[in-house]
């Protein structure tokens, strides 16, 4: 799962310099006509660079995102939930695998990407720097974070880079199951015992600010992304995606009798836009730059996994037998 919380690198407006203007023209015309760009096609260096960053960050978000939910697999209550959560988190790891492959087509290896992740050079979705405190947090994550991810991923799947779009189409199918699982889970808690209701309300209170952060800073304060939007790298504005999310999910949350911890949240019937308390973008920045409640832990876990698994990867590297890809 992944949001628009991605901070694009500043690009110069208009045509990038130092590119062959004739090639650039053809490239942009193809994109405008809705064609997909494939790995062997000519592309501006800036396009390649921004795509690698974005897909890589998406992939990292999938494996880091597996951690907060993954820790609840061993505690899931009952067979039904345990099996469903296992399958869900497994899917997320599979998404990482697909996305690393998509990014590799642009010339950066999985190993290099993972190295950049564990050294902190490359980012992942900010929401995963928050802890899943109780079982109900996993329900809220699976429902609302995955819902947000779907909005972002459906938009991105209509982008211009072929391998990324195809990966996203497959991912979105699986995400829709996650959303169903998450919703079902929240419904059971919200309509359950007083204790269960309390758990799920607390979890919603905890997760609302990260959810509002999920789509990234308001367009008013984001870096300019006109070129990236013209190249169909960035597909929707952060604020538009946030509005879409609120439109789809606030009524569903209210329907369950849950309270959203924002007294200013309401739909302005005249403009059709949701009004809300402006999320704390200072906190967002602080957390994305490493100072969130779980940044250190997440990276430490990932680093430990990489270190512990290193001998296996080395053994395979020089083993004569070819690795057999598992079935699912």
């Amino acid at each position: 799962m992944y949001g628009g919380g991605y901070i694009f690198e500043e690009t110069k407006n208009g045509s990038p310099e130092n590119e062959d203007s004739r090639k650039l023209e053809i490239f942009e015309a193809r994109i405008a006509a809705g064609e997909k760009i494939e790995p062997t096609d000519w592309m501006p260096a800036e396009y390649r660079k921004q795509l690698i960053r974005m897909i890589e960050q998406h992939a990292h978000s999938e494996i880091i995102g597996a951690l907060p939910e993954g820790t609840w697999i061993t505690r899931a209550p009952g067979f039904r939930r345990k099996l469903a959560l296992m399958a869900k988190v497994q899917d997320e790891v599979g998404h990482a695998q697909l996305l690393y492959s998509a990014a590799e087509t642009l010339g950066k290896t999985r190993e290099d990407m993972i190295n950049d992740l564990i050294t902190g050079k490359s980012k992942y979705s900010n929401v995963f720097n928050y802890p899943a405190v109780t079982w109900a947090d996993t329900a809220i994550i699976a429902w609302l974070i995955d819902a947000g991810a779907i909005i972002n991923q459906v938009a991105n799947s209509k982008g211009s880079y072929g391998p990324y779009c195809r990966a996203l189409e497959r991912i979105c199918v699986e995400e829709s199951f996650h959303l169903k699982y998450g919703h079902d889970n929240v419904v059971f808690l919200a309509t359950g015992t007083p204790k269960q209701r309390e758990m799920v309300q607390d979890a919603l209170n905890r997760w609302w600010p990260p959810i509002m952060h999920f789509f990234g800073p308001s367009d008013k304060i984001s870096v300019h992304t006109e070129t990236l939007m013209r190249w169909k790298v960035k597909m929707a504005s952060n604020d538009d995606m946030r509005q879409k999310f609120l439109d789809m999910y606030v009524p569903k949350i209210w329907e369950l009798g849950l309270t959203i911890p924002d007294p200013l949240l309401k739909k302005n019937e005249e403009t059709g836009q949701w009004e809300y308390t402006e999320p704390d973008w200072q906190e967002f920045k602080r957390v994305i730059n490493g100072d969130g409640p779980c940044n250190k832990e997440r990276l430490a876990v990932r680093r430990r996994a990489e270190e512990k698994g290193e001998w296996v990867r080395l053994a395979l590297l020089r083993s004569e037998e070819k690795y057999t890809v598992p079935l699912s």
């Binding site: 494996i63 497994q90 996994a305 698994g309 598992p326």
Partner: peptide, 21 residues
């Protein structure tokens, strides 16, 4: 299932999860 997210390579992560399920 405790290997989920922690396998030596992503493919093994997925394989162990699948067998655990």
């Amino acid at each position: 299932s405790e290997w989920t997210g922690l396998g030596p390579i992503l493919e093994e992560d997925i394989a162990f999860s699948s067998m655990a399920q």
